[in-house]
Amino acid sequence: MIHTRNLPFVTTLAIFVIAYGLCILQFPNMLSTRVIGNLLTDNAFLGIAAVGMTFVILSGGIDLSIGSVIAFTSVFVAVAVGSLGLHPLTAFLAVLVISTLFGSLMGAMIRYLGIPPFVVTLAGMFLARGAAYLISTASVPISHEMIDAIQGFYFRFPGGGRLTALAILMLLVFIIGGFIAGRTRFGANVYAIGGNIQSAELMGVPVGSTTIGIYALSGFLSGLAGIAYTLYTSSGYSLATVGVELDAIAAVVIGGTLLTGGVGLVAGTFVGILIQGLIQTYIVFDGTLSSWWTKIVIGILLFVFIVLQRGIIWYSNRRLAESRLKEI
């Protein structure tokens, strides 16, 4: 039997399978490893960022700074490697440290100053975007033999599809993220805080360090997503990735995570990313549709999922009430 807590995930998965089936019926070519490989590569940076967002939302918070941090990271790396001639690995390491510290600082403000996550990360969003402009307002191209090597690396699927380094990185992040959420104390504490922060505190959950850890993780993954984005576009641009945090939130919610926190799976977010990628691919295949249809379909799906989540909560409450009546 499917537990009610997994119902949103199962629904998402079913919607993806059915939608993919319908797409294949219309365009048989969509069933190819090429399409799947491209879908994974094109959404790699979004997927990585969405894993961080999953943890944040599971804890009942929100992180609006993700898109700006990605832009900052890409400009930072492009300038450091392209203009200053730093080794890419040094630049990567530096930018990951910066973005992780940035996330920790936001987490500390949320916890110790008692400011709502929405406000803190909104400030973080402006700050990171401004810092990106400060480094460079132009689109900075990047070229380095190591970066070329990473971009050129792939495994070939049977059927001609390519599993690129970026896709592998995203899959790794999802797998590790899933383990952290499901199989570590930190993960359990994240769910506990998202369920009820007062109860969690009374049960001895280290709320302070966990909150800082959550936003540090989100910052780290935003930095990593920024690196992926730089590798994907071979450039850094401070105007890029505006609103990516909203796409990430959409993927998380469509993936079955409750916006109020405490319920959801990292795997769900992966399916959420796949659904977004599928819609984009369909639009490409169709050729006549405006790409803005992606946004419309995502919007409709979000509505459906929020209503579905309400429905599940209502249903399980009613079932509980019924079982209590029977006990009496």
Binding site: T184, G195, N196
Partner: peptide, 26 residues
Amino acid sequence: EVNLLENLTVAENLFLGRQPSRFGFI
């Protein structure tokens, strides 16, 4: 009232913060 966490399972509630672990994983 505010005591345990309704969004976790019974076992998770009983062992929150002191879960048995193997190789660092729960």
